[in-house]
């Protein structure tokens, strides 16, 4: 693609790399986790070298994800605080889903939906990490009562998180011109002005 010097930088190389480490870990964790969760998905363990390998690897991949996820949270938390206009945006999200974003309230770097998604992911990751440690028999031995609670929490939070990521991925595909932001870091000015006008203004100095 031809580089356009007028494009706006949305993510640094290090932010993008951080995101993809988390993303790859997530995919591996979801595939191996679903294999344990439902017999229909058990054959997925073959991607990891069999059931025993999937069982061994899953928690270690989880630890890597948890660490990189934490770094992302530190980087992005302050950009994701919910403000009045974000709630307004969430209330009117139906219009946008229906295909008309003309009357949506003006948004900063992230819109209300992205911010809620961010906090949903933070909450699920926290629950998943804590419960995952309780279930990890190679290193810990918690009481059977705690492990029983942990498996339900882990499975429920993981299913919730996988659902959130489906929405996250679909939103990126649906909103054309978005995926490049996470691939090589830039977006077009038109994209920025349409979806994140306040961020566009702060990046360009444009008053419109």
């Amino acid at each position: 693609m031809i580089r356009n010097p007028r494009d706006l930088q949305r993510y640094t190389a290090s932010e993008r790399a951080n995101h993809w480490v988390v993303g790859i870990c997530f995919i591996l964790l979801a595939l191996s986790g679903l294999a344990f969760f439902h017999p229909a998905f058990f054959p997925l363990v073959n991607l990891f070298g069999g059931g025993t390998w999937a069982r061994i690897l899953h928690p270690y991949i989880g630890v890597v994800m948890a660490l990189f996820f934490l770094v992302m949270v530190v980087r992005f938390a302050s950009l994701n605080t919910m403000a009045e206009r974000d709630w307004e945006w969430v209330k009117r999200v139906g219009e946008m889903v229906n295909g008309d974003d003309h009357n949506m309230p003006v948004q900063g770097k992230y819109n209300g939906g992205q911010k809620l998604l961010f906090w949903g992911l933070v909450l699920s990751m926290l629950l998943i990490t804590l419960s995952g440690v309780v279930m990890w028999r190679s290193w810990f031995s918690f009481s059977v009562g705690m492990v029983r609670t942990a498996v339900v929490v882990h499975a429920a939070a993981a299913a919730f998180m996988i659902g959130l990521i489906f929405v996250h991925v679909y939103a990126a595909i649906w909103t054309r011109g978005t995926i490049r932001a996470m691939l090589y870091g830039t977006v077009t000015r038109a994209w920025a002005k349409q979806h994140h006008r306040d961020w566009y203004r702060s990046m360009t100095g444009d008053k419109n």
């Binding site: 969760f37 439902h38 229909a40 229906n98 929405v167």
Partner: peptide, 27 residues
């Protein structure tokens, strides 16, 4: 098990059909 599978399946299918019926969100 069935609840989580149904919820995830519907989210995935819902996304696909949304794209097919409403089209992408172009600039």
């Amino acid at each position: 098990k069935p609840l989580a599978m149904a919820a995830l399946g519907l989210t995935a299918l819902g996304s696909l059909f949304h794209y097919v019926m409403k089209g992408p969100n172009e600039v």
